[in-house]
Write a protein that binds this DNA or RNA. Sequence first.
DNA 1: TTACATGCAAAGGATTTGCCTCTGA
DNA 2: TCAGAGGCAAATCCTTTGCATGTAA
Lengths: 143, 143
Amino acid sequence: MGTRTGCVMTKSILDRLEAQGLRMTDQRRTIARVIQESEDHPNAEELHARANALDSRISLATVYRTVKLLQEAGILERLEFGDGRARFEDSQRAHHDHLIDMDSGEVIEFCDPEIEALQEKIARRLGYRLEGHRLELLGRKLK
Amino acid sequence: MGTRTGCVMTKSILDRLEAQGLRMTDQRRTIARVIQESEDHPNAEELHARANALDSRISLATVYRTVKLLQEAGILERLEFGDGRARFEDSQRAHHDHLIDMDSGEVIEFCDPEIEALQEKIARRLGYRLEGHRLELLGRKLK
DNA sequence: TTACATGCAAAGGATTTGCCTCTGA
DNA sequence: TCAGAGGCAAATCCTTTGCATGTAA
């Protein structure tokens, strides 16, 4: 689950949190660690479960508050795969797109420089400077 | 608002509804008409407001039920732009992607055969047959 | 006639918030 | 010390559903 290509990790979420001068609490440390160690795209409830396994003093409300904080700080990216709940991932891991297996729901990550370049070109043609994008491919396994 | 390129309209939503052998009620006719005439990407509440302007006997619940019906029949596409509510559009208009103006929120539609082809290629490379995709570009107007 | 559609209000699920207590710096 | 963080439960927002009534075919 979770194939990746060409993405480099630099600073830990914790480092980036501290760099922003945000107050460090046990809860934030734990949640940061959980996100850091997640190879998939957990939703709030999943983050809560994983964080609780490390420290049972963490409430779901705090997970939501922390996730929003990290998102506003640009540390975390919020994703929506159309199932009605938000999913999260480290934005340093975020320079990639997703292919969703329509049968199993498995999410495969990929990076493609060609598609990035093409997107730039399209935006420019429409009179815009590209600031970001979301791309999800939906497919079924070839036999 | 709503620029488009290279998309052709063939049958009305109403025709497609009838072609599926679904029961035709005044509510469904009105909702179909409202979607047909929408050039933007209305959410359920907006559809409800527009439908009510034509016929006040339409409840929000019926809008939700009809929209789900049309979606399952492949007549309508459900979109999510990350604001937590679903938006809808005629799927005959749906072979295109969206560029979202990060400042104004305006949504520009575009079709690009190159990007379609590239997506096919990427999916195949990952061992999948492409069945669909979602692509949103986020950008700011060039000055 | 009768299976299916609708309205209304209540239920549900995800997320946010008020309030009071606790704690990092 | 004390502004900001967290827990808990209530509130909110969007969407779905149960039930009694209405209606297309």
